[in-house]
Amino acid sequence: MFKELGALVKGLSVTFKSMFEPKVTFQYPEQKRPVKPRYRGRHVLRRYENGLERCIGCSLCAAACPADAIFVEAAENTDEERYSPGERYAAVYEINYLRCIFCGYCEDACPTQAIVLTDQYELSFTDRWDAIYTKERLLEPVPPGARPTPQKTEPGKFVNPIPEMPDFPEWKP
C-alpha cells in the first residue's frame, strides 16, 4: 500500500513543481507580445514630407495582389487640386481585409513605396462592409507643418508623370 502511496506522491510532486515554473502566458488585451521586425500587418498609404500622397494610382499593387483584395481607381492631377506629385493619383483606393492575405506583394510592386505593411494586426469585424478600408482610413496623417491634400501648387513644379524621389534608394539590376 505504501508503494502505491509513494507513486501517488511522486506523481503529484510533478504537478506541485509546475506551480513554481516561470509563467509563459501573455495577458493579451493588456499585455501585447512584440511582433517581429518584418511582421506584415495592415497597410498604410504613405505621404511625402510636404503632405502629398505617394500613391500615383498605377494599380500595380492591385495587379500583384494574389487575392484581388485591392481596388484602385486613378484620376488626373491638376495644379489647382494636386494629390500626388505624379500625373495621376488614386481617387479610390480600397483594400478588403477579408480578402487580403498579408503577403506583402503590393509593397514589393509599388514603384513609389506608397503602400507599406505595418505591425497592426487587430482586425476583426462584425460586418463585412467594415472590412473594406477606404483611402481615408488607409492614408497616414498629414506630417506636421505640411498641408493636407488636395494642395494648390504652382504650375511647372510637378511635370513628371512619375515623381522624382530623392529619398529613394537607387535601383540597381
Binding site: Y28, Y97, I101, Y121, E122, L123, S124
Partner: peptide, 29 residues
Amino acid sequence: QGVDEVVPVDVYVAGCPPRPEQLIHGILT
C-alpha cells in the same frame, strides 16, 4: 465563398491565418 452563405456569422476575423492575438481580438469583439 464565405461561411455566411450557410450560417449567420457574428464576427469576421481577418488574417491568413490570423495570429492568436487576432482570434482573441475577434472573441473580445
